[in-house]
Design a binder for these strands. Structure first.
Lengths: 149, 149
DNA sequence: TTCATTGCAAAATTTTTGCATACGA
DNA sequence: TCGTATGCAAAAATTTTGCAATGAA
């Protein structure tokens, strides 16, 4: 398990300076249960430091992501927006219903299986896997089938 | 294999009108080998109809996507931008190297396996699967390992 | 001290929307 | 004819960037 301190050390080791702003952004991502997009990270960071700027949050998230210190996830419902979470969070992906818009989180061993296969076959080092599914949930699929026989 | 005419019929059946602009947008997506983002679709559509507007392209792509008549794909390299392609294109996903930025296309039976499992277990109807991987390709991974022993 | 980092504001980019007009069915 | 769809232009939403001042190492 990577700790906050470890992550800061890695950040420094990769040639970046440790600033209060960066510590705050990291804390926010590490301590949130949900996936936060950039705006949400900014809002929470802003509560801790009234002077932090949105530009700094953008820049910091980009650095942390580039260094592999946080992960990005995309929700299908709002795919264009990146959501961040700490590395090491339990693996899960998202299915979004196109009709009722509920998000169903799921796990599947197939993803890691595939990652391992690709790494072995193609020699890749896979750091991030983005997987999101869209379609209709059970009840909405049933409704649509009934509406259009 | 769904034909252009079939797709238009489905579009009409779902309550939308067939306009020259919509036909052009559909043709562009169907006839392009690459994945086009909205701007690229607009550019190609614009060559065929100098008066077509970007707003119409946005609106048309949204409709076609909502109706499941085209699919969206996301490339990890440029994840925030949607890329469209016709339904029924051969399954493939993307890995992007964070260093040299090359995009490696790959296939994996694990995806369909997972889709089938999820549909069976959760009763979902999965229409779109977005999967993109990021990390380092074989040579870039080797370089990084050498640079930071 | 030195240079990476910051905040601010402006710019750039991308997408959406209001509305009068045009046109498909 | 009737109401959807369009083009335009303006607005909204999101992200990036220039620059002088600040502050981490």
């Amino acid at each position: 398990m990577t700790t906050h301190t470890d992550t800061l050390a890695e950040l420094r080791a990769s040639g970046h300076r440790i600033t209060p702003q960066r510590q705050i952004v990291l804390e926010v991502v590490e301590n949130s249960a949900e996936h936060l997009d950039t705006e949400a990270v900014y809002q929470r960071a802003h509560e801790k430091d009234r002077n932090i700027s949105l530009a700094t949050v953008y820049r910091t998230l980009a650095i942390l992501k580039d260094e592999g210190l946080i992960e990005q996830r995309y929700l299908a419902r709002d795919h264009a927006r990146e959501h961040y979470e700490p590395v090491g969070a339990p693996e899960h992906y998202h299915f979004t219903c196109l009709d009722c818009h509920q998000v169903i989180e799921f796990q599947s061993p197939r993803v890691n299986q595939m990652r391992a296969e690709l790494e072995a076959e193609l020699g890749l080092l896979i750091l991030q896997a983005c997987l999101c599914l869209e379609g209709y949930c059970q009840s909405c699929a049933a409704k649509r089938a009934a509406a259009r026989p």
